[in-house]
Amino acid sequence: MSEENTRYDASQIQALEGWEAVRKRPGMYVGSTSERGLRQMVFEVADRAVNEVLAGRAASVDITLTPDGGVCVADDGPGVPIDETEGAGGPGLEALLTRIQVGAGTRGRYDVTLDFCGVGPGVVNALSRRMTAEVRREGVLWVQEYARGVAATLLTKVGTATGSGTTITFWPDADIFGSAEFSFDGLEERFRELAFLNQGLEISLTDLRRSDEPRSVQLRFPGGTRDFVDFLGGHTAAPAPMDTIAFEREDPRMEGVMEVAFRWCSCPEKRVQSFANSRPTVGGTHVVGFRDGVVAAVTAYAREQGLLTPMDPDFDTDRIGAGLTAVVSVKLDRPKFGGSMRGVLGNSEVRECVGQAVQDHLGRWLKEDPERAAAVIDQIVQSARRD
């Protein structure tokens, strides 16, 4: 190879400025240019609206897939501040939609991050051929249009407004995403999770892309994680030997609150879904603590009732997992995530807190309902013997 081919100096460095960098490497900001990237764009826009509801400033979020390939995200909050001098604790409209956020960062227990990118709606604007923003604030309707991340019109007062709120609509740029389409089912799955994990949250998702087959779901679950477990258990026709155990407990040792629900059904599958600050996790100290608590409670009860002989070993996590459906959610002031996708919770104190709470609640249930307790223990013992 010649010296000319191997030479590398400053003249070969390409400097990209502004939104050019985002449009050149979109996968770095939204994950991909496939359906997954489109889904992330919806999350980046809906993030602010969802947190308006959780903060008590709005009642609901409405998301619509429009017939012309766009996405409309609307909320009934106070409306995004028009400029940064209003003192509303956040950027003004144009700043929100034309600047990249540094990242998701670490939010408190009452804030939701819909996904792990956290780059904000400005990136969505840059990757869209068009974006429109309507703000209904203090009786005035404001409108502004953007094209590929840049304001195409001035922020304009167009009339009076009934109520308040913000509506942002964007149309992904086909030059970047090609023929990729939004998945209604993919969006529904994540928004359904959020509604289960946050009892005050109401989200509607509507698909108007096919006039002959519109779809719409209303997502609100006052029962929280209990409803979540019942939903997961609804995928099997196998009977459940026990009711769903569900509880919420705040523990200052972990600077947060836990919400746990679980039950056994007469089927071999195990479904344990875990979350930290409403983010899906693949494991971590909250999951280990849950398993510790279940194993301790079931083993102690089985020995008290003579269902295990002195020679029998304690149950382990594989044995007690047969037929178990559970949702383990913790919301922490200072969560610590690990793993390449920040999907593993690392707060060490969470394990003991969750483990003790689960052991207390399950141990109490086993003693209060001995008939169903025996059915659960028998299922676990039979599973162990089959193995």
Rank of each mutant, 00 (worst) to 15 (best):
F231S: 15
E189Y: 10
G200M: 11
F247T: 02
S216R: 15
G289L: 07
G223I: 07
G284C: 06
F221L: 11
F228T: 00
T285L: 06
G284F: 06
D292T: 00
E255H: 14
E259Y: 14
M258Q: 11
V229M: 06
A246H: 04
D173G: 01
L308F: 07
F290Q: 01
I176M: 12
A300S: 10
R279D: 01
M311H: 12
V229F: 05
P252N: 02
G233Q: 07
L307H: 01
L219M: 15
A296T: 10
L201R: 13
P222H: 14
F182Y: 14
R253D: 13
F290E: 02
E304I: 03
H286Q: 00
A195K: 06
A297M: 07
Q218V: 13
V272H: 11
G200A: 13
S204E: 00
G186C: 08
H235T: 12
A296W: 05
E259M: 13
F182Q: 03
D312P: 03
R303H: 11
D173A: 02
Q273G: 06
E193W: 04
E255L: 15
Q199T: 15
F177K: 08
G224A: 08
P239F: 02
I203G: 00
P310S: 05
F191V: 05
P239A: 09
V298H: 10
E269V: 15
R192A: 09
V295D: 00
V282H: 14
F191P: 00
T285M: 07
E193T: 09
P268C: 05
P214E: 05
R291S: 09
C265K: 15
R253P: 03
P214A: 09
T299K: 08
F196N: 04
R226E: 04
D251F: 07
G186D: 12
G178K: 08
G223Q: 02
L208F: 13
T236R: 15
A276D: 04
P280G: 03
